[in-house]
Nucleic acid binder design. Structure first.
Lengths: 107, 107
DNA sequence: TACTTTATTGTACATACTTGCTGTAAAGAT
DNA sequence: ATCTTTACAGCAAGTATGTACAATAAAGTA
């Protein structure tokens, strides 16, 4: 779900391009309360591989939805958090989540 | 973005699986006001190929987000509309759209 | 010295998604 | 008889996305 070089046909298209992708929503969601380290994210987003986590975090960072903060320590420490733009997405991820919960219960 | 045989890790995951995909959001969005025929959808969702339109409509139908109504006429006539479940998604697609518009303006 | 920890990166491969193009049915118009 | 219209279906091919597994750096600990 690359963002660069893609022109959106409309705002809906644009938004979906920006937060579509298998893990983006979940990552933004688990980051809603603050800072998480790489390993914490990995545990929070069950089922994601390290490769995909790294890749998706990079995309989200390039997209300015999250911030990556590196601590110069050994072993390495990196913390991720939402940008203001990222935070704006939380309400509707929340809404989608409610819808999803309701739907899952219905079946 | 197949839905069958996929188990969601959480409600966010579930929701994204169900409306993720390049065109699903846009199709649901243009159907918000009522019924559209295949050809009308094709014109409304600019850039979609007939193949993808058909495929995406099938997925949405299997997913019970839209209804397909066939008129036994020649040449064929088929109308698509939202189910109640599909309609529930409109508010937050709308919200995403607002966010998208704001973002697009910001750049 | 060897082992552990953390946050990656690299390669190879598999699967999913998307596009482009051609083809079809069947009634009505020319 | 041929053309037009509508809503698709089929196939080949490319691109994007995702998985599995191995490897790295560099300090601290056993």
């Amino acid at each position: 779900m690359k963002n660069k070089n893609k022109k959106a046909h409309c705002a809906v298209d644009y938004a979906f391009q920006r937060i579509g992708g298998k893990y983006k929503g979940r990552i933004l969601w688990v980051l809603r309360d603050g800072f998480l380290r790489y390993g914490e994210l990995k545990r929070a987003v069950v089922g994601i591989t390290p490769k995909m986590l790294t890749q998706t975090l990079k995309e989200l960072e390039a997209d300015e939805l999250i911030v990556r903060k590196v601590y110069l320590e050994v072993p390495p420490k990196v913390e991720y958090s939402l940008t203001d733009t990222g935070k704006e997405l939380i309400p509707f991820i929340s809404q989608m989540r409610s819808w999803g919960e309701k739907q899952m219960a219905t079946n």
